[in-house]
Simulated assay, not measured.
Amino acid sequence: MSIFDKWDKKFDIKALSEDVQEVEKNGGVGEYEEVPTGKYEVNIEKMEIKETKNGDPMFSCWMRILAGEFENKLLFYNQVITKGFQIALVNKFLRSLESGVDVDSTFIGHREYNNMIMDIHEAIDDAGLEYMIEYSKNNKDYPIYKIKEVFEG
């Protein structure tokens, strides 16, 4: 059994899909040198769904800084996706990448969601897209990433 099958059995996919759509309809919202908050030009190095230590599905995106004092450092956007609002947050980010791949609010299952993410990453690579990203933190010190500008490479 694949990890996607495991997740699809663990979670109520229909309820999760409905939750994602409702949240989006209502505006839904190691040892290394930490990169300070700010604006950075990045490329998307890796995007996938992977398993957390608890066995839950998590969206993971690695963004490599392309210039400046923190050139070649990575920013990591990791979001557990077990609730509708969490998937809606990832969907909002995925849409902001302007890859040309449709990000549908209908959640069919983890395998299909991962396939869409892989399609988005491939489209970004094929187009040579790079991004100006604003990296900040919320009041609980969780990172927030907002795409400010899209560049064609």
Rank of each mutant, 00 (worst) to 15 (best):
S2E: 15
I3H: 15
F4N: 12
D8I: 04
K10H: 02
K10V: 00
F11K: 12
F11E: 09
D12E: 08
L16W: 05
L16Q: 09
E18T: 10
Q21M: 05
Q21V: 00
V23C: 12
V23L: 06
K25I: 00
G27Q: 01
G27K: 13
G28W: 00
G28F: 02
V29D: 13
G30H: 14
Y32A: 15
Y32C: 06
E33Y: 10
V35W: 00
G38N: 04
G38Q: 10
E41R: 14
E41W: 11
K46M: 11
K46T: 07
K46L: 04
M47L: 11
M47V: 15
E48H: 02
I49W: 01
E51C: 01
K53S: 10
K53A: 12
K53Q: 07
K53Y: 14
N54W: 05
P57T: 01
F59L: 11
C61W: 07
R64E: 14
I65S: 07
L66H: 01
N72G: 08
K73E: 13
F76N: 13
N78E: 12
I81W: 02
G84M: 04
I87Y: 06
N91Y: 00
L94H: 03
L94M: 06
S96Y: 05
S96G: 01
E98Q: 09
R111W: 11
D119Y: 06
D119T: 10
H121F: 12
H121G: 09
E122C: 06
I124Q: 06
D125W: 05
A127Q: 15
A127V: 12
A127G: 09
L129T: 09
Y131I: 00
M132D: 08
S136A: 13
S136C: 02
K137Q: 15
N138D: 15
Y142S: 00
P143M: 02
P143H: 03
P143Y: 00
I144K: 07
K146S: 15
E149A: 04
F151R: 13
F151Q: 09
F151Y: 15
G153D: 14
G153I: 07
G153V: 14
